[in-house]
Design a protein around this nucleic acid. Structure first.
Lengths: 346, 346
DNA sequence: AATTGGCACTCCAGTCATGCGAGTGCCAGA
DNA sequence: TCTGGCACTCGCATGACTGGAGTGCCAATT
């Protein structure tokens, strides 16, 4: 069994290794940390830690390096998430100070977070599945093109083009608008999709005038609602990976690809399990199912108008977990506060 | 002076070096290419090429490598842009086959291009500065939030939130809509911005009812028009850079950063000078002002509803210029044709 | 004048031997 | 349970050596 001091040794190893990228030896530990025991004692502890697979030696008789499991124990039991410096706090508020619409706020958030941590920053959009449709607007552009705009009460807006054969006069357009209104406004995104499906199958509607065009428009609305249902991400800081390349045994290719694909990261972020503080970490090999076995993700939940979502950072397994945890927590809190203010000012 | 055969030697060096990444020596040239002369003769030619700074030796008595200037001569005089294989052609049309709105088509284009070349693909949006405003739409969302939608006759749509103090009744809203309509509809983006500026200074308007709110809305419209005026990009394939890392003496950091920033690449693409076929290349050190001295960009103009824009690829200086030129040309032609069809079907 | 074979020379890249130092593992003693 | 001591293991840097690829140049040939 690993002793209390053994865990402190693990902490020291993680901290020093993250600091220096050098495997850390027993002598270095007694020099840099005030353990009050000799190097030989530390060595005994290290042997225990190695038995538990918390640290490993890259080569026989070289310093030790934390394993993924070691990082996990460090994060779960040893990392004290220390609050940010005041400089960092002002950095956050200067980035996020001004209000704006959701896209705007999240775009600034993600930049603030990559700035703060020097890692790839990820901000998940709040889920809109439970949001309600508040407006459906049609704008006729001529030539059979119709702009279909859908707005939810959480402030999300989507616009998309529908191609209908002919243009309509105002009366017909009004009728279609009215139909969409009764069909969708006030309904949740989920309900709306269901009602659209019903509508498209309904025999009664089939015979309605302008049915072909109306159906085309309704289908476009369904696409837009479906997009609301899917979660979305914004990311920034992919260039920082080039700086950290030495920390990846393989290449940074999988990370860059995941960043471009988005969907992998979306799934990964979705599956992470947060602790009671809303913080979560997924370390190294734990991300193997996503092809990101050399990366770690640290994330924090935030609240946005009733639904939860996450902000996080992604980087090499050898990262400064306490700082990154502190940063995502601070940003998530700030974001929650901002979005609440926004809500209450409506 | 470099002889005709000397240029063929340069071509051989460029081709072999791009192929193998090994500096190429005189012996390798006579083996791989049927010059019908001896290695010693090639050596004499190579000495000339070196005097002209078209090739260089990484170390004394090692093979030769093309210089940036050498690539330039190769691209200008030696590269025959051979047509794509039929497999590649079908790949393009299967990617780009279906019609859709502009965002959609360009998104698929950029993916097709990165697929085709294995490089970072860049597609510039057509410039909308000369486009005309065709619709301005206001959607009241309640709580003093107003969605402002602007549409141009080139099919570009922008939506943005304005924060006005209070909500309006339909009559007032109608008045504001009408004012925006007479102010902007049918005007070019450029004119529209000017007219907005005039409107905001006009003494007459100052005293109008709901002036504060109207002014807020007009300012939001101005932001949207301004966004139209700025060129935009879509990119894909940044992950491919991780694969080509060995081709960058320094790191890929500047490239990744440029991709994230976008504006650098926008300027670079804008300043490239196309030949009579609409093709352009910017090679290595020529990109130094943009911090991309180890990268090359190959681009082709395309036509979109009256305005020109570019598609291109970015990669290491050591790239397969003929293939990439062929790919961007083919994609640009395809894109032009698609957008024209789209236009004529309106 | 252009081309060629020959030859001396350069320099890279790989291999091997060597020594040093950091670090470990283990043991006997406190 | 901790400690000092000691033998041992490797990694890594250094330096010497060598083979080979490639050049540059020159005199001879066409």
């Amino acid at each position: 069994m690993v002793s209390e001091r053994g865990l402190q040794v693990l902490r020291a190893i993680v901290e020093d290794y993250v600091d220096t990228r050098e495997p850390v030896g027993s002598k270095a530990i007694v020099e840099r940390h005030a353990f009050g025991v000799s190097a030989a004692t530390i060595r005994n502890d290290m042997a225990l830690l190695e038995d538990e697979d918390l640290i490993a030696a890259p080569h026989t008789s070289s310093g030790r390096v934390p394993t993924d499991k070691g990082y996990r124990v460090f994060v779960d039991h040893l990392a004290d998430v220390r609050p940010l410096s005041s400089a960092q706090r002002t950095a956050i508020s200067s980035f996020l100070g001004d209000p704006g619409d959701l896209d705007d706020v999240l775009a600034r958030t993600v930049r603030a977070l990559t700035q703060l941590t020097g890692q790839v920053a990820i901000v998940q959009y709040p889920s809109f599945a439970r949001a309600n449709v508040s407006h459906v607007e049609l704008v006729q552009l001529g030539g059979g093109r119709m702009l279909v705009i859908v707005v939810t009460d959480t402030g999300r807006v989507s616009q998309r083009m529908a191609f209908v054969r002919d243009d309509f006069d105002d009366a017909d357009l009004g009728r279609i608008r009215a139909e969409l209104g009764t069909l969708l406004v006030g309904r949740s995104v989920r309900d709306g999709l269901q009602r659209i499906a019903d509508r498209l199958e309904s025999a009664a509607a089939m015979t309605a005038p302008h049915e072909a065009a109306t159906a085309a428009i309704v289908r476009v609305v369904a696409e837009e609602l479906d997009e609301f249902r899917q979660d979305r991400l914004v990311m920034a800081g992919s260039a920082t990976l080039a700086r950290r390349e030495a920390d990846f045994r393989g290449s940074i290719y999988p990370l860059l690809e995941a960043i471009e694909e988005q969907v992998t990261i979306l799934r990964l972020m979705g599956e992470m399990v947060a602790d009671e503080n809303g913080l979560a970490a997924s370390i190294g090999r734990e991300n193997e199912p996503f092809g990101l076995a050399e990366a770690s993700v640290v994330a924090s939940d935030y609240d946005a108008t009733g639904s939860r979502a996450r902000v996080g950072v992604m980087g090499p397994t050898r990262m400064d977990y306490p700082s990154n945890l502190a940063a995502v927590r601070a940003v998530a809190r700030y974001l929650t506060r901002m979005l609440e203010e926004d809500e209450s000012s409506r």
